[in-house]
Design a protein around this nucleic acid. Structure first.
Length: 518
RNA sequence: AGCAGAGUAGCUCAGUCGGUUAGAGCGACGGACUCAUAACCCGUAGGUCGGCGGUUCGAUUCCGCCCUCUGCUACCA
């Protein structure tokens, strides 16, 4: 019985088109999902769209649509993006689906039964943009318009609202952070959350009556659920809630990992565990917040004109290349920058020159000098053994990095071996051995091919297609590509006929239009 | 304002639980080679490790203060 691993991205708000931030989160989470599968876990990977809320309603009105129509039009864009990026999600949830309505209704009722939901009324200055109320003293009037603390316009709203007794969970949340420091990652985020919670928690307004695009509150259809109650619940919907006795829910919940953006840490590390505690459900093991991406140091914005869609990037550079770039270049958890120049440098230096060329130079020697047959190695020299040992050591180092979602570190580990292998190859100079010591040449070529094999296996989570082609070139069977064959256990067999070598990672050649895109 | 983190080679960053010559990648320059995707390999780059002071035989690494930047929280207007 394989151990299970359930991981999620945040669900995207489809009142516009997917942007690079959505793509980044999906790519990174997919890499983690693929890594875990290859490492022997039974993985469930969920992503989707968060379709309710007043902003969807407003955007729909502006475009002359109903919110449901807007959601139906835009949700496929996100689904397509995920596919375009090669994501291996097992499910794509839309919060407008019946299964999600059922789950949201159920968790609400559980929280209510636990005495944590009460009806009260709320009056105050409300910012639609912030989806938040502000006290009178938090607002300012400028040019006849009143603005809230975040500088967004506010309007006076008075409505009845259900409240969640968040204040009752302060101590239990602090105990959670204390007992499970790994609950929040990266570690820096934990302190922020702890200090926020220590500062005192107020009860949370969790329903709205001013619009109806949402999930109706059970027993009081005048209200729809606050969009975050609805949105967060998607994670248990995806596991099969409310069928808590069902096989799916028992199998997948609690989630092992929620991957989110740093802007929504509080919802996931304060509100969400409180909701779950109230509903009597187990808590996710870990919430990891990644950073934001900036184009040449600037946040993407339409006015700056630097908005690049995921599709533009994939079209310009290739899917695996884009995945590799973002996951290697940006330390996962920190903000990062990207630019055309940086992407091209990574593609050419790391992929074409280092890995692609390593494969090509060794495989073409096998093709030309050994009739395309992978040689059986002779006795290993100290250099051979050292090189193999470095490759064999990759898996534990990658595991350690991936356990903390340090995807870039895992790639660093692998590419350090690629660099070593190029040094090894140049140092052994098999092209010279061809004349002086053909048997040694064969061993060196074998060792190099074996390094490429292990590198390719470990590159699969990030570049599934390209790494697969590399393994094809080594005639590695489809059932010998997971992590169980890393290390000495899965050494390439000598004497196997290899296909004609082909470049897997072409150099990026500059064109004017691509430059304009980056 | 409080709390947290950061300030290291041209750029992006790693690192030092205090100690001989502070590292990597990219970029630049020089060299070598020819198996390979004009790739790879070797060498050089002389950086006050933000500033000042302290502890110490010795601090980039510990302590204090200051400056700058970032995040979180609060508040004022």
């Amino acid at each position: 019985m394989k151990p299970t691993f359930y991981l999620t991205t945040a669900i995207s708000y489809p009142n516009g088109s997917p942007h690079i931030g959505h793509a980044y989160e999906a790519m990174a989470t997919d890499a983690i999902a693929r890594f875990m599968r290859l490492d022997g876990y039974d993985v469930h990977f969920l992503t989707g769209t968060d379709e309710h809320g007043i902003k969807m309603l407003q955007t729909a009105r502006r475009e002359g649509l109903t919110p449901a129509e807007l959601a139906d039009r835009n949700a496929p864009l996100f689904k397509d993006m995920v596919a375009l990026l090669g994501c291996s999600n097992d499910d794509f949830i839309r919060t407008s689906e019946p299964r999600h309505h059922a789950a949201s209704k159920a968790i609400w009722e559980r929280m209510q039964a636990n005495g944590d939901i009460y009806l009260d009324s709320y009056a105050g200055w409300y910012s639609v943009r912030d989806e938040a109320f502000y006290g009178e003293d938090e607002t300012i009037v400028r040019d006849g318009v009143r603005y809230g603390a975040q500088g967004t316009p506010v309007e006076w709203v008075e409505e009845k609202s259900y409240f969640f007794r968040l204040s009752a969970y302060q101590e239990r949340l602090l105990a959670l952070y204390e007992q499970h420091p790994e609950f929040i990652g990266p570690a820096e985020r934990r302190n922020e959350v702890v200090s926020f919670v220590k500062g005192g928690l107020k009860d949370l307004s969790i329903s709205r009556t001013t619009f109806d695009w949402g999930i109706p509150v059970p027993g009081d259809p005048e209200h729809v659920m606050y969009v975050w109650v609805d949105a967060l619940t998607n994670y248990i919907t995806g596991a099969g809630y409310p069928d808590v006795e069902g096989e799916s829910f028992k199998r997948w919940w609690p989630a092992d990992l929620h991957v989110i953006g740093k802007d929504i840490v509080r919802f996931h590390t304060v509100y969400w565990p409180a909701f779950l505690m109230s509903a009597g459900l187990p808590l996710p093991k870990r919430v990891f917040a990644h950073g934001f991406l900036f184009n040449r140091g600037e946040k993407m914005s339409k006015s700056v004109g630097n908005v690049i869609g995921p599709k533009d990037l994939v079209d310009a550079y290739g899917r695996d290349q884009v995945r590799y770039f973002f996951l290697r270049e940006v330390p996962f958890g920190q903000d990062g920058n990207y630019s055309h120049e940086a992407i091209v440098t990574r593609i050419n230096a790391d992929l074409a020159n280092d890995l692609g060329n390593l494969a090509q130079r060794s495989l073409s020697m096998i093709a030309k000098n050994l009739d395309g047959t992978l040689p059986a190695p002779g006795p290993f020299s100290d250099e051979d053994a050292a090189m193999l040992a470095r490759a064999d050591a990759m898996l534990p180092a990658c595991r350690e990095a991936m356990a903390m979602q340090q995807v870039h570190q895992a790639l660093n580990v692998v590419w350090a071996v690629v660099a070593d292998a190029n040094r090894y190859f140049a140092g052994q100079a098999p092209w010279a051995l061809r004349k002086t010591d053909p048997a040694r040449m064969e061993t060196v070529l074998y060792v190099t091919a074996e390094i490429v094999r292990q590198v390719a296996i470990l590159a699969q989570p990030v570049m599934p297609e390209s790494a697969g082609r590399l393994l094809d070139l080594l005639a590695v069977p489809a059932d010998a590509r997971d992590f169980t064959v890393l290390g000495p256990a899965g050494r390439l067999p000598g004497g196997v006929a290899l296909p004609a070598p082909q470049g897997v990672f072409p150099r990026y050649v500059e064109t004017d239009e691509a430059k304009a895109a980056g």
